[in-house]
Design a binder for these strands. Structure first.
Lengths: 220, 220
DNA sequence: CGCAAATACAACACCGGTGTTGACTTTACG
DNA sequence: CGTAAAGTCAACACCGGTGTTGTATTTGCG
């Protein structure tokens, strides 16, 4: 009576491997054309698996998309863990996003169709900019959340754009490091010479105090 | 012999007006769900017009999308004409993009499916950042093209994101002006305090000479 | 061996779109 | 009035997807 379900033997190895193959194919397809246009038929085909087999692993198309999404999200979270503070790994991050257009397409998909997961993804991102702004190295009057949106814009759009703009991977990576450099430059020094734009300065306020001041105030 | 085509009378007024209605409906639909998911059926329906009538104006779905796209592109070009230098109209621009999510969706559509028009749209945008960088008010070592990509990212993503994030228009506009302020702030002063990030400074180079120097060199 | 899980395959019902066609109605204008 | 353009309508062929079902086939393991 201990086990009303007799220990059913399972051919786990194959099952798991097939599932992996399906997810991998789905992932490739999501990288190429986005989750919206993922079709179970195509996924099954490129996975070298019958369509009905795919339906045995994922009851609906949507379930498949969600499975891939969750896998991706976990991966990114894990990756970000290893990169602190991220401002010192901008190049690595840029390369990472460039190498994983599925992320960009997924983010877009989320953005365009308000599903439950997007919050998690966005928070993952904003969390990082908040840490920077709240740290000692940033200017005092920065707006972490809005800064996050600035960053998110590039992070999402660039990988997709680069794929189209540059044929070979070498050129893509070169352009990406150019972008990363400009990002770093802007973060450090800004773009405009304040003395030439008095009207802007009036709107934003004069050169701000440093965030470091806060820390110093705490432990003088 | 002057007129081999006898002056065919045309009921222009209705024809033109119907066409307008169809385009307007298509535009609304593109703003809501993007050009990919535009369907002639839905457009005809919301235009209060029979589906076959729509097909009399635009032979294919694609032709309809292209017509709307061209109209939009022309509009943006016209709008940008009136806003020089654009850095002094960042709020107006932000509001404009926020009010026209069709643009963002179209840009995305272009970005994701390398069609012929995108170049024109992207160039329209990069043209503006180039003018800024080449003007006297920018720092000397800015990379106009890459800067353009930074800007394009927000310009495209923010309107879509704001639509989802904020229910009412007031909140949307408030958040947008917050974003605009942060953008201006970053452009003027950057985000990071260089003295706290020696490694970044080493990568990018020290505080750069001003672009104005170039001008002064030319006419001392 | 023999069982059961994992997979394959074909057929089906269903959906929502595209683009076409032919016959009908409305309406402005010469 | 008569004509032709503009629009309506219903029906059709076609496509490519989804999800289901019933019947095979392979394969690992007790």
């Amino acid at each position: 009576m201990a086990a009303p379900t007799p220990p059913r033997r399972e051919r786990r190895s194959d099952f798991v491997q097939t599932r992996r193959r399906i997810i991998a194919a789905a992932r490739r397809q999501m990288a190429e054309r986005g989750p919206e246009s993922l079709t179970v038929s195509a996924v099954a085909h490129t996975a070298g698996v019958n369509r009905t087999t795919a339906y045995q692993h994922f009851r609906t198309r949507d379930e498949l998309v969600r499975a891939v999404s969750e896998e991706l999200l976990a991966e990114v979270a894990g990756y970000l863990e290893t990169k602190r503070p991220i401002v010192e790994h901008i190049d690595a991050l840029a390369d990472y996003f460039l190498a994983h257009p599925e992320l960009a397409r997924l983010a877009l998909y989320w953005l365009l169709s308000d599903s439950p997961l997007p919050r998690a993804g966005k928070e993952l991102f904003l969390h990082e900019t908040r840490k920077i702004v709240e740290g000692a190295g940033a200017r005092a009057d920065a707006d972490a959340e809005m800064l996050g949106h600035l960053m998110m814009g590039v992070a999402v759009l660039w990988p997709l754009h680069a794929r189209i703009e540059f044929e070979d991977d070498t050129a893509r990576r070169a352009a990406t490091s150019r972008l990363a450099r400009e990002l770093k430059r802007v973060l450090l020094y800004g773009l405009l010479r304040p003395e030439e734009w008095p009207r802007l300065v009036a709107e934003v306020g004069a050169a701000p105090a440093a965030a470091a001041a806060r820390r110093k105030r705490r432990s003088p």
